[in-house]
Write a protein that binds this DNA or RNA. Structure first.
Lengths: 90, 90
DNA sequence: ACAATATTTAGACTGTTATCTAAACATCTC
DNA sequence: GAGATGTTTAGATAACAGTCTAAATATTGT
């Protein structure tokens, strides 16, 4: 369960996607334009992120809008801080 | 630079190693005993963790003692919390 | 210096993953 | 319903990562 999370975060393209979404929701196409790779490849990455629960997707007509699932990040941050640095505060 | 970090965290064996080290320093051999894989494989994982700056190694006679580098975890936790959930608090 | 123990490195093998193109599916407009 | 646009899925390929065995390196003790 935690495995999917860390594995999803391991790819730089996916982290960039997440950073873009942190600035505001975007559609799949808007996200794909930001990368030099094929739309299908970005779609694949979005699938991984969705599967990890890091993002949520919602169809809006022809488009699919993606948004960050912020609570999951809080969980990871808490896990890292607590388990490895002995405190919640960072 | 951040790439090495997240990539290192992506493997479950390496996270287990880190969790063991969180409970106290250990030598390479002591760590290797905890896993069903070859010593050489654990050594490889330790190399990845060292390279990512997540652990530090120090020779003690025949043994090599590993310890957690806690500050790096605080950095990651802070990055995650700040970038993706809009706050330091977790 | 030699043997024993602890650890790392090298090279090969295998499974996984990121990428591509092409095709399929979904939605909107005419 | 046909065509246009947006997105995902399928199948293939190539690079990467984890594992193994065998060999190399480092340290200690005799």
């Amino acid at each position: 369960m935690r495995d999917h999370l860390f594995r999803a975060l391991a790819d730089p393209t996916r982290r960039k996607i997440l950073e873009l979404l942190a600035a505001g929701d975007r559609t799949a196409g808007e996200l794909a334009e930001e990368f030099p790779i094929a739309f299908a490849s970005v779609s694949h990455h979005l699938g991984v992120l969705r599967n990890a629960g890091l993002v949520a997707a919602e169809r809006e007509g022809q488009h699919v809008r993606y948004r960050l699932n912020t609570t999951v990040f809080q969980d990871i941050a808490r896990y890292l801080a607590k388990t490895f640095s002995g405190g919640t505060d960072a």
